[in-house]
Amino acid sequence: MNLIMHLRINADRVIRLLLLGYLALVFFFIFTPIVTSIIFSFNSERFPTIPLGSFTWKWYQTIYADADVWEAAKTSIVVAISTSILATLIGFCTAYTDFRYQFRGKNSYLVLALLPPTIPLIILALAMLAWFSRLGISGKIWTIVIAHTVLCAPFAMAVIRLRLQQMDPDLESAAWNLGASEWAAMRNIVVPFTKSAIISALCLTMAVSFDEFAVAWFVSGLNKTIPVIILEILQGNIDPQINAIGTFVFVTSITLVIIAQLFFILRSPKQPTHV
C-alpha cells in the first residue's frame, strides 16, 4: 500500500513536469516570432541568418526618415484615440443598460452590441467599404474611426460590465431616493466607481485599433495607418524595416495594455459603504 502511494505520488510529479515542459514548448512557439522580430530589427544583415550580423540602428533610421511612415503614424494615432473614446462611450452605454435595465428584446440588444468581433474582419472590411461608398463618405479618416469603433466597442463593454458587476445595485437607487437626479447619480456614483475600467477600456480599444489592418486597408483610401504600411511592405520584398516598425508598434501597444492591466488590477479594493 505504501509502495503504491509512493509510486502514485512519483507519477504525479513526473506528469506535472511533463505538462510544464510541454507548456514551455507551447510558449516557445508563441513567443518565437515576437522575439525574432525584435532581434532582427537590430540586425545589420538584410536577409536574416544565423549567426547574426552586427548591431545596427539603420532600420530604425530608415523608418525615422520615411515621410510616409510619419504620415501613417499620425493617422494611426488620430484614429486610435478617436476610436478609443467613441468605443468606450458606446461600450459604457451598453454595459450600463445591461446592468441597470430589464426590457423586452434585451437579448437581441446584447447580441446586436456584441456580435461584431465574431464577423471575419475581411467581410466587415468589404461591407464597410461598400456601405461608405454608397453613402458617399469613403476614403475619409473618420470612416476608419467608425469602422474601428464598431469593432472595438464590444471589448470596452466587456471590461466595463465586469466592473459594474461589483457595484451594489442599490447604491444608485439610494442616491435617487435622497434626491439626486439620474445624471447626478451617474456622475457622482457610477462613473467614479467604474473609472478604472473606463481607463482600461480606453487603453485596450486604442491598442486594438492601433493594430488592426484588414478593415483599415479596405476603408482607408489614401489615409494609410501603420499596419496598412506594414501590409504594403510585406507585399514587396523581404525588408527588415518591418521588424523596426513592428517593434515600435509592439512597444506602444504593450505600454497601453500594461496601463490597462494596472488599472484593472489596482482598481480601488475598498467596496463603497453600503447605505
Binding site: 518565437t32 516570432p33 536574416p48 508598434v249 509592439f250 504593450i254
Partner: peptide, 19 residues
C-alpha cells in the same frame, strides 16, 4: 498569453516567413 493579441499579427507572420 494576452500579449500576442497586441503585437502585430502581420509582423509575427513576417517573422515566421523569415524563420
Amino acid at each position: 498569453l494576452i500579449i500576442p493579441f497586441f503585437t502585430s499579427y502581420l509582423v509575427r507572420t513576417f517573422s515566421w516567413y523569415v524563420i
